[in-house]
Amino acid sequence: MLEGKVKWFNSEKGFGFIEVEGQDDVFVHFSAIQGEGFKTLEEGQAVSFEIVEGNRGPQAANVTKEA
């Protein structure tokens, strides 16, 4: 699992990017966010995740919000 911070997330469109120190930003789709209820992320929020190869390159999977 990697750790990063949410760079930005558009809850209307359901996607955004996660910043990872020393690496390129990683695309995140709302469907990759773990948990119940409305799936969104806040700018600057700490998250842990895995990287998988998507249709358009690397993207986040199994995203969990850090306490």
Rank of each mutant, 00 (worst) to 15 (best):
M1L: 12
M1F: 11
M1I: 13
M1D: 06
L2T: 12
L2Y: 13
L2R: 06
L2F: 13
E3I: 15
E3V: 15
E3N: 15
E3M: 15
G4H: 02
G4P: 01
G4W: 01
G4T: 01
K5H: 09
K5D: 03
K5C: 05
K5Q: 05
K5G: 02
V6G: 02
V6K: 00
V6W: 01
V6H: 00
V6Q: 01
V6R: 00
V6D: 00
K7L: 06
K7G: 05
W8G: 02
W8N: 04
W8P: 00
F9Q: 01
F9R: 02
F9Y: 09
F9N: 00
F9S: 02
F9G: 00
N10H: 08
N10T: 07
N10W: 08
N10C: 06
N10D: 12
S11T: 13
S11D: 07
E12M: 12
K13Q: 08
K13R: 13
G14N: 02
G14I: 01
F15G: 02
F15Q: 04
G16I: 01
G16K: 00
F17Y: 09
F17G: 02
I18W: 00
I18L: 10
I18G: 00
I18E: 00
E19P: 01
E19W: 14
V20M: 12
V20E: 02
V20W: 10
E21A: 14
E21P: 14
E21G: 11
E21D: 14
G22Y: 08
G22Q: 09
Q23F: 12
Q23I: 12
Q23L: 12
Q23T: 10
Q23V: 10
D24T: 10
D24A: 13
D24E: 12
D24P: 15
D25R: 04
D25S: 06
D25Q: 06
V26N: 01
V26H: 03
V26P: 01
F27L: 04
F27I: 03
F27V: 02
F27C: 02
V28T: 04
V28S: 02
V28G: 01
V28K: 00
V28F: 13
H29C: 04
H29T: 03
F30Y: 13
F30E: 05
F30K: 09
F30P: 02
F30Q: 08
S31L: 08
S31D: 07
A32K: 06
A32C: 04
A32I: 03
A32R: 04
I33E: 02
I33R: 00
I33H: 01
I33A: 02
Q34M: 15
Q34N: 14
G35D: 10
G35A: 10
G35F: 08
G35W: 07
G35T: 09
G35Q: 11
E36S: 10
E36P: 10
G37Q: 07
G37P: 07
G37E: 09
G37Y: 06
G37V: 06
G37A: 08
F38D: 09
F38Y: 13
K39C: 05
K39Y: 06
K39I: 07
T40P: 03
T40I: 10
T40M: 09
T40A: 10
T40K: 09
L41C: 03
L41T: 03
L41I: 07
L41V: 06
L41W: 02
E42D: 12
E42P: 06
E42C: 06
E42Y: 14
E42K: 13
E42S: 10
E42T: 13
E43M: 15
G44L: 05
G44N: 07
G44F: 07
G44P: 02
G44Q: 07
G44E: 04
Q45K: 06
Q45V: 10
Q45Y: 07
Q45L: 09
Q45I: 09
Q45T: 09
Q45F: 07
Q45D: 15
A46M: 12
A46W: 15
A46L: 13
A46G: 10
A46C: 05
A46V: 13
V47C: 04
V47G: 00
V47H: 00
V47F: 01
V47N: 00
S48D: 05
S48P: 00
S48M: 11
F49Y: 05
F49V: 03
E50N: 07
E50Q: 05
I51T: 07
I51R: 07
I51E: 03
V52T: 10
V52N: 05
V52L: 10
V52H: 10
V52M: 12
E53D: 14
E53T: 14
E53K: 14
G54D: 08
G54Q: 08
G54F: 08
N55W: 14
N55C: 05
N55R: 13
N55E: 13
R56E: 08
R56F: 15
R56I: 09
R56N: 10
G57N: 05
G57S: 06
G57C: 04
G57P: 05
P58E: 06
P58Y: 09
P58L: 11
P58G: 06
Q59W: 07
Q59I: 11
Q59P: 01
Q59S: 07
Q59G: 04
Q59E: 11
A60T: 02
A60V: 03
A60M: 01
A60E: 01
A61D: 08
A61C: 04
A61K: 11
A61N: 09
A61T: 12
A61F: 10
A61I: 11
N62E: 05
N62S: 12
N62I: 07
V63H: 00
V63W: 00
T64W: 14
T64V: 13
T64G: 09
T64Y: 11
K65W: 10
E66Y: 15
E66K: 15
E66F: 13
E66G: 15
E66W: 13
E66N: 15
E66S: 15
E66R: 15
E66I: 15
E66P: 13
A67Y: 13
A67I: 14
